[in-house]
Design a protein around this nucleic acid. Sequence first.
DNA 1: GTTCTAGAAC
DNA 2: GTTCTAGAAC
Length: 763
Amino acid sequence: MEAMEIDRESMSQNHITREDKEEEEERGKLNPIVVLLVGAPGSGKSTFCDHVMMNCPRPWARICQDTINNGKAGTKIQCLTSAGSALKDGKSVFIDRCNLDREQRADFLKLGGPQVEKHAVVLDLPAKLCISRSVKRSGHEGNLQGGKAAAVVNRMLQKKELPKLGEGFTRITFCQDEKDVQETINTYNALGPSDSLSSGCFGQKNANVKIQLGIMKFLKKVDSPGDASSEANVSQKCVHNEVSKEKDHGIEGTQNCSVPSGHACEDVKDCDKVEMTSVADGNASDNIPTLAFPSISTADFQFNLEKASDIIVEKVEEFINKIGKARLVLVDLSHGSKILSLVRTKAAKKNVDPNKFFTVVGDITRLHSGEGLNCNVIANAANWRLKPGGGGVNAAIFSAAGLALESATKERAGSLKPGKAVVVPLPPTSPLFTREGVTHVIHVLGPNMNPQRPNFLNNDYVQGCEVLREAYTSLFEGFASIVRSYGGSSKGSSGRSVKSETSPTNGGQKVKREAVYESDVNKKYKGFQKDLKPGVRNYLNGKEDLDKEDGGGMTKAWGSWAKALYNIAMHPDKHKNVVIEILDDVVVLNDLYPKAQRHLLVLARGEGLDCLADVRREHLSLLKTMHAVGLKWTEKFLDENKSLTFRLGYHSVPSMRQLHLHVISQDFNSQHLKNKKHWNSFNTPFFRDSVDVIQEVSDHGKVVLKNEDNILSMELRCHRCRSAHPNIPRLRSHISSCQASFPASLLQNGRLVFVPSEDGTGK
DNA sequence: GTTCTAGAAC
DNA sequence: GTTCTAGAAC
């Protein structure tokens, strides 16, 4: 690599042997630029320069502070002098030093005067990657040298200030992974001697912005309260302008659309939301495949309701786990519907997941327009000829779907036997498709117990039940096949296109996506379900609790395993093995999988209070009780072991249903602490201190929950010294010995509970 | 929430 | 080869 550098040097030496005038012209053509690499040791700055200098047609000089002094580390002044003379020689310049803070960058931005463009290439790669590289570079992983390297990287990253256009850069490129780095290398490689790159910020991706910002915010909160956030706003606006200019000119088609740095987190999320709601019509549940079906055979075919309801619940239970996140909805037109109430009761008894199966009173042909419920598939209680007419559901569906359904049905089948079903894709011309978003109708024929109708079973319920079971099996299997087929479709269930599904991703990811589409779809639906409005969720649960509509925005769906705490709260006496205290409003228990030496849960006993998002002003005294009970237990624990420190708080989005307060000692010494999520759920803003929750509810009547998706996958940082660690074992080994004092913010407002040391300085 | 496990990272 | 993570299933 060094040889290559020397070659370029000698090449450009030839240029400057020309006459001054020519030289001046040449320089004008050369259009040299100064590129400041910004990144921690191990972020790949030198490698970046090497790659560009090897392939880029323009002459470059790399100014490396580590080697500028005859191969040894030199000074900033030396760098500046050397960079200045390289520029005079018409070379573009890489400033290969960390440049992590603004002050360090400032002098280099003056190089060559304002006519020389200044770029920043930010190698903002994960701390653990930088650490592991610099540890490797220093040779011996694990020894003092390695440890030192990690400490250096950590210290630098904690202080880093990302560059802003306002500092004097004309272009800033952010690289957050290897792919970004390669793209940026390609961009610079393609830069001919007189070319220039357009201005603006490039390469910051939404998801990563959130992660990075999460860290920044957290660090800011911990380290430096009055940071210049207003300045960030200014530069952000500036970036916005630059970006739109960029787009107008259409110069950089391949660049990632830049997302402003600074406090952009909320903005970015809001943009996403707007996009999603505008496309998906404000109801995220649009995209969960849903089958609406009438009760088969119980109307005109006079099947016994008790027996039919048993079979419905039985079959729903059987299929619900086979169809991923898709939902089944039993629909009946009448309000006092006996079959609905029977099914509801039986389903509840069997603990059928109320998010995946529920009942609705309404017209099956108007579920979207009438009830606001999107069902992409509806079942028809058909007749054996598969013809319109008769009465009830069959007549209604054929009538609502128009001739399109008749002809589409004819194409598929001419008749149907009892117990069978036929899936008919609904032509997009059908009003049922356009108005209601129904993409398929499944005709199903049940057993007939009505002597006035064909195939009368003469009260033979042995056969009748068998046929009805078969009918539901055929129906649900038909639906399952539709759900599977959605794997390759780019259409949402409603027939309206769904932005998130078609949004571009980078090549590599896309391939992976398609290969695992089936599960990917499931994940997505899971996500959407999580995004249901509280009101919708309660509706799905059959609750009428509209108070929650205006609440914390998003609530989540509960997996079947998530009810353990709820069960304990409802029947603490039945769980005496785990419960350690039962009071009027709360139950106390040791966490089954403690993440620290002491870890207990204070559980609210009331019904309908699942998580922080449900909390309102009326719960204030309960919150205070929970806190007080938690404190009482910490006192007991501190009596036993004065060296412990406790923190009391809630998970922003808990995995287990039923509001519970964590009381957890800060040693985090537990074999159950196994993964990033475990750590980050107690050591990022995902963990909401009880004192703050109480304050917020008291001030605003609810808890403001910021839905920072990636917060649980943030890099691992020590909760005391804030150092970053590459993995859980290393983090655990670090925290077992870290004696640094806790961040100031935790020492305020009683967020940490401990016995003050004798000198009164606390921890 | 945990467990299991494929496969990525080391 | 071993360690570790992350996603799916429960």
